[in-house]
Design a protein around this nucleic acid. Sequence first.
DNA 1: CTGAAAGCGCTTACAG
DNA 2: CTGAAAGCGCTTACAG
Lengths: 336, 336
Amino acid sequence: MTGIVEVAARAGVSVATVSRALRGLPGVAAKTRKSVEEAAAELGYVASPSAAALPTGRTGAVAVVSPVARGWYFTAVCEGAQDVLTANGYDLLRYELSDVETDRRRVFDTQLLRKRVDAIVIASLRLTNDEVEALYAMNRPVMAVGPIVPGMPCVRIDDVEVGRVATEHLVQLGHRDIAFAGGDPDDTLGFPVSPERRSGYVEALHAAGIEPDPAMTVPAKFTVEAGVEAYAELRSRGVNPTAVFAVSDEVAMGIMYEARRHGVRIPEDLSVVGVDDHDMSWLFGLTTVAQDVREEGRIAASTLIERLRSGIDRETSVTTVPATLVVRSSTRRLEP
Amino acid sequence: MTGIVEVAARAGVSVATVSRALRGLPGVAAKTRKSVEEAAAELGYVASPSAAALPTGRTGAVAVVSPVARGWYFTAVCEGAQDVLTANGYDLLRYELSDVETDRRRVFDTQLLRKRVDAIVIASLRLTNDEVEALYAMNRPVMAVGPIVPGMPCVRIDDVEVGRVATEHLVQLGHRDIAFAGGDPDDTLGFPVSPERRSGYVEALHAAGIEPDPAMTVPAKFTVEAGVEAYAELRSRGVNPTAVFAVSDEVAMGIMYEARRHGVRIPEDLSVVGVDDHDMSWLFGLTTVAQDVREEGRIAASTLIERLRSGIDRETSVTTVPATLVVRSSTRRLEP
DNA sequence: CTGAAAGCGCTTACAG
DNA sequence: CTGAAAGCGCTTACAG
């Protein structure tokens, strides 16, 4: 493996000069820099990140920590983050966290993460207070994408607003019997996304003079399968919504699938609105409150890089990106 | 950051002993090992991968290199690989390669990759001969998932067989006018997947005494959008297939979407079969030749780890995993 | 079974 | 503007 000494020999300078020249540090004569750069290029030399990390403490890598969830959402966050990380010479390390406590401890309790990466993106992950503490103790810039983590800077959408916009759309189409599918009864960590979207739903109903019917709220995690179950639950309860607001597009897809399986036509018999604008939502003609998840990943990464440049601080600013209603064919005016 | 000297101090031994004890090396007294492990646990100590990489040359990380393609496929490969890498204490580094040559050179020409990781998974990436050479020059175990790369070990499905199985299914349902959607006219790197699946298609047709009609083959990359365009192209050519074999499920989804938009019913008017068993295929009732992509990722990762343990060799074995027809509701017998 | 010391490939004060 | 040298945190012959 070509190392810095070979480059130095070839360029006829010391390794110190090579180091400075290649990193664009000031105080290197222009022609010296040029010949070093040439020598490095000819040899295909790049400084070993491991070796450079030792004296500097910088690894040149950023971690994206997400749940094991194999969803479109986390993929999109990573893609966005990767775009800007690559462009800035950082590598992207992926950590998937299960719900198993021991697995999580491995990441949070040990200092592995801290020793591996310069900064951390938390992608829509439910964290315990201890985990938040551990994250801070790492003394590395952290950025959350998704729900607000107290004391942590964050990129997000306004989930209450999202719920309101989705529900208002249905109300304006004349619907009054509007169900909500979302919220995970198993969630021990208080993941706020579903409750907030439901708050918006409740607000919008109240604003329209509609009293929310508890029987119209059915639980659903963020998966297609959960949507299927949610619709089944709705039927088994014997309630008859004319519209459903699903906590995510994947849930909405499951609802549409199951409804059709029961001969319920969409949108003639049932209007459905989701959240996200999943890559495949247009295929289903799904009306949705769209968010640009890749952009959120990009913002998270560039914020971290900026922070890395300017020195670590404990910023906690929250960036709220817009979410906009995209009307397609899964919702329609309620025929009286 | 707690380092090895603190652990040594706490355990009352030398750093050499700590190093040996923690890595499970032989020649450490049982009680010594125990007290070292306790000290390390109390301090939350983990050896710095960067520092350890310097003397050993091992980084404890594995790269997954894939195209920028934001597809389900690459995500699934990564998920599978991550499962086994995490379980074995390796971290997963993600590299997305664009089609832009300069971006690719950054990965292949420089020795960054080699200095960053111990092994490399190539996920269904079209490589030039130079890139294959560069990969070998890195002297790191490499494993391809997807198409065979000459001289490189690989996990794959038999794409000719896949094409044959899909087409035979349609033939057995009485179809004779069977279109094929796949193959990328822009592909300069000779990506073999589509051509091989088409070979299977041609073979199956011949076996049934059907002469393939060139007008029945339309190009399509591996995306939903390409499927939409492929169906549009089929219409504009004025051919009237009663069935289509799509090179992937995403292409099939696009075809179904566009066909229905034109009032063509599936499967009454058109049978469609894809390849992959994409996570969402069941939602579309899509008949498909299923492959277990996550398992392929797992196999790739465990093969690499095995190779890492046993020392680097230039193995080139090809592991072919099964692909099986899953019949759902997008295909049906042709009514005479 | 254990420890002292050299060395991995860089970066960075410190001198000049 | 440039170089010699110390040091980053580990691992690994080499002694004992």
